[in-house]
């Protein structure tokens, strides 16, 4: 089977990549575009470390053949980092000591980004459901859940101020 060109809008930048059939999105992001913030943990969809947002939905990029998401909009951890600072979710993770080895953080952040975009006021149960496919082996889940909850509240507050 022949390779083909896949067009993606990655973190707002148009990208064209040549992919062999079956090449996964995580491989395109990491190996071709060198966006290494997205992590590869298991390559079989069981750890969530490679989670990115594709057309508004959090997906595990190790399970997505790149040719099936031609022309999609992809957001990675690099795309949620403001110039010279941290986004509200990132800040909440740092302040809440929700990082340890760091390997799960990108995936957690992308799942949380998609969650809050869809539901600005998630309950703890909503947050747990959203990150249920993301494995953390160090910090435990409570600080991560708290950080997502705190960030969502902060973002709602900021939105309200902006609206007034």
């Amino acid at each position: 089977m022949a390779s083909r060109i896949v067009t993606l809008l990655v973190n707002g930048t148009p990208q064209e990549v040549i992919v062999r059939p079956g090449t996964t999105l995580v491989s395109v992001l990491r190996d071709q575009l060198e966006l290494t913030g997205t992590k590869r943990g298991c390559a079989d969809g069981s750890c969530g470390a490679c989670s990115v947002v594709v057309d508004g939905k959090a997906v595990r990029s190790c399970l997505i053949p790149a040719e099936t998401v031609d022309e999609a909009e992809v957001t990675t951890v690099e795309g949620i980092t403001p110039v010279g600072g941290l986004g509200p979710l990132q800040e909440a993770l740092v302040e809440g000591f929700a990082t340890q080895c760091g390997f799960c953080n990108s995936g957690m952040l992308m799942v949380a980004t998609a969650l809050i975009a869809e539901n600005p006021d998630p309950s703890d149960a909503d947050i747990m459901r959203a990150i249920s496919g993301n494995v953390c082996r160090c910090t435990g889940y409570h600080p991560i859940i708290r950080a997502i909850r705190d960030a969502a509240a902060k973002m709602r507050g900021a939105q309200q101020i902006a609206a007034e």
């Binding site: 290494t36 997205t38 990675t76 951890v77 979710l89 990132q90 000591f97 953080n105 952040l109």
Partner: peptide, 23 residues
């Protein structure tokens, strides 16, 4: 006294360099 982890910013921005991030 709590003090921030030195590596936390790298972790949450995806810029911490793990061995496999070298190409």
């Amino acid at each position: 006294q709590p003090s921030p982890r030195l590596d936390a910013r790298g972790h949450v921005t995806g810029t911490t360099r793990y061995f496999e991030d070298n190409h």
